[in-house]
Simulated assay, not measured.
Amino acid sequence: MNLALKIDVDTFRGTRIGVPHLMDMLKRHDAGATFLFSLGPDHTGRAIKRAFRPGFMKKVGRTSVMSHYGVKTLLYGTLLPGPDIGKRCTPVLRSVRDAGFEVGIHTWDHVEWQDHVGTEDAAWTEERMAKARDRFREVFGAEPEVHGAAGWQMNVHAYRRTQSFGFRYASDTRGTHPFLPVVRGEIVACPQFPTTLPTLDEMIGLDGVTEANVAERVLALTAEPRDHVYTLHAELEGMKLAPAFEALLAGWKDQGYKLTSLAGLAAAQPPGGLPLHTVLDTPLPGRSGTLSTQGPAFLQDRSSP
């Protein structure tokens, strides 16, 4: 069975410090992975506006945000100017590709996308996605092939752009298995490989889960073999939660998984095409607000031409 590792890189600090640490760990375990980069300004401090969102402050308290992100990062975009990640971290980004890992797009401005895409229009959405695509071209000299939305936040226009921008596949959703998304009755011809497992920050602090036992809890969810996508964060597993991630890597290998990238998972799909599923915005345990989620199977009218 394949377990694809999807690494969301949200911040300047995560890019500079967390990404190199993760590359070292992955190499030690002979693991593939897909790194998805935030390519514009780091405005993490502006997330303070989420304080009034139901569940947000509880999550902050559970997951020790200060210890994971650091004071400076939490001031970017407010009291401190947000550093341009794509420009200032170009050597780090290229080193990931040069080490043989898959690279793709997470977002332009992580906080802006996560907080506003749900209510914005086609022009706003296309502008942000085009900025990220153009910066990716500038950094890597190639077209991006994979997209994974910040915070699993999407709108109908973003789904359409994953198709029109030519992404081979995306991981913008939470769900159970690969599918073609149907948005408002419209089939989007960009396959989704959804995150199938909870993230560490969603689990820690709930139901007796701690940093010491979270790896054990995740491994219990993967004990029955099947394909998975696991999302981790450079700011967490690449730093303070590195011991838990190292335990996961060893545990997954013991369970018989091939640790691969989204590209590896896509290549391993059986012939015959992917099923169609609607996409929904639904709440998930350990998260505030709603996330883009794989919904019911979409049944086409087979009687129509």
Rank of each mutant, 00 (worst) to 15 (best):
N2W: 00
I7R: 03
I7K: 02
D8A: 11
D8M: 10
D8R: 08
V9I: 15
R13M: 10
T15V: 06
D24G: 13
L26N: 04
L39E: 09
D42C: 09
G45F: 05
R46S: 12
R53F: 14
T63A: 06
T63Q: 10
V65Q: 14
V65F: 14
K72G: 12
T73C: 11
P81W: 03
G82K: 05
P83H: 11
P83A: 10
D84Q: 15
I85T: 10
K87Y: 12
V92H: 05
V92A: 04
S95M: 04
G104I: 03
G104H: 03
W108S: 04
W108E: 02
Q114T: 14
A122R: 13
A122Y: 10
E126H: 14
R128F: 00
K131N: 11
R135N: 00
F136A: 05
E138Y: 11
A142K: 01
P144N: 12
H147D: 12
G148K: 04
G148P: 07
A149T: 01
Q153H: 12
V156F: 00
H157R: 02
A158T: 04
S164C: 00
S164R: 13
G166Y: 09
G166I: 06
R168S: 14
D172K: 00
F179G: 01
F179E: 05
P181C: 09
P181I: 07
V183Q: 06
E186N: 08
V188W: 06
C190N: 05
P191S: 12
Q192G: 04
F193T: 04
F193R: 03
P194H: 02
P198N: 08
L200W: 03
E202D: 13
I204T: 08
G205N: 09
G205A: 08
E211N: 12
A215F: 03
V218L: 14
L219F: 01
L221K: 12
L221D: 02
E224R: 15
E224N: 13
E224T: 15
P225E: 06
L232R: 01
E237Q: 05
K240G: 00
L241T: 04
A242S: 15
A242G: 10
A242W: 07
F245Y: 10
F245S: 02
G256V: 00
T260R: 01
L262V: 09
A263W: 13
A266K: 06
P271Y: 05
L274P: 09
D281K: 14
P285Y: 01
S288C: 13
G289S: 08
G289V: 05
T290Q: 13
T293H: 09
G295I: 07
Q300S: 14
R302W: 14
